[in-house]
Amino acid sequence: MPLVKLTAAGIEPVETVWTRLGGEDAVPATGAVLVPLARWQAEKDSLLARADAVGVWLAAGETADSISGDLDRLTVVALDFPAFSDGRAYSTARLLRDRFGYRGELRAIGDVLLDQLIQMVRTGFDALDVKAPVSGAAVTVETIQAALSRYSLVYQVAHDPRPPVSALRRRLAAGGQA
């Protein structure tokens, strides 16, 4: 189950091992952890005092507002997809990025499938914890790259910088290269 980070250089596998904690799990002494929102709110000082990285994960029903006051203290926010068919996190991602100006890592976790990666990137995610297919076939940087390159054109303006088709048409009409 590879975790990758999208950077200007491309798709980079993340070497750090992240432990995702539930509501009751003890915080390990060392190692990077993702904690649920309630734990973060209750224990943020002790969590930040640890030597290793800490991030917060939001369940699908938890809102961007609930974490907005802490965004400048966080380097990783993860949004959970309890099922790939639950699309709330796409809107939460837009709000974190566009309304609250969050610039840190925004990670997709949970039921993150190859077929949804484009939408994730377009709505502001820059880290993807991609789930392996049921067949057990490996997910690699190449398969992720292939999934992200599936569409060369987009019709809408979203969070990502891709120009929509209407802008390409304008450039073409002005005599430029699309």
Binding site: F84, Y90, I118, T123, V154, Y155
Partner: peptide, 13 residues
């Protein structure tokens, strides 16, 4: 039609 085609935010409503 164009706006709604593969809208990244509104495909898993």
């Amino acid at each position: 039609r164009q706006w709604s085609t593969f809208h990244p935010e509104f495909t898993y409503l």
